[in-house]
């Protein structure tokens, strides 16, 4: 059941991204979509609207980049509670450090080892 929910919710989030690309100006690129999802996810999360989606769909809500925004927002909020104002700057990055670190390390390794094919 959880698997099905992850599939459906994750798929629907991607459909929102697709509509964003297909129905708006032609100058919308993947970079705009990614930035939009991260900021959108963070705002929804701060308003308390994203956590219910994560509870419902698990990876269906955390794997789309809006989930990255959610981690950033929640990290900042948690850190402000424990450390005060300094936490606002550190919290989001702390909470997402594993993912970003992995992205840089794997990204670098793959880019060095492989060559473009097409």
């Amino acid at each position: 059941m959880k698997l099905l929910l992850a599939f459906v919710i994750g798929g629907l989030l991607c459909v929102i991204g697709q509509l964003f690309m297909d129905l708006t100006r032609s100058s919308i690129t993947p970079a705009h979509v990614l930035v939009g999802f991260v900021t959108g996810g963070a705002i929804l999360s701060a308003l308390g609207l994203y956590q219910p989606l994560v509870d419902l769909a698990g990876a269906g809500a955390t794997i789309p980049l809006s989930g990255f925004g959610h981690s950033l927002a929640q990290g900042a909020i948690r850190a402000v509670q424990s450390k005060g104002l300094l936490g606002a700057f550190a919290g989001g990055i702390e909470a997402t450090a594993a993912g970003i670190g992995a992205a840089v390390v794997f990204g670098y390794a793959i880019a060095v080892v492989f060559n473009p094919r097409s």
């Binding site: 690309m21 032609s26 690129t29 993947p30 473009p116 094919r117 097409s118």
Partner: peptide
């Protein structure tokens, strides 16, 4: 193709949909 794409648009391995 590949020199032009990356100068004007995207790297070729980028997963994008061409209109």
């Amino acid at each position: 193709h590949n020199t032009a794409e990356r100068q004007y648009r995207f790297p070729t391995e980028q997963g994008i949909q061409r209109p």
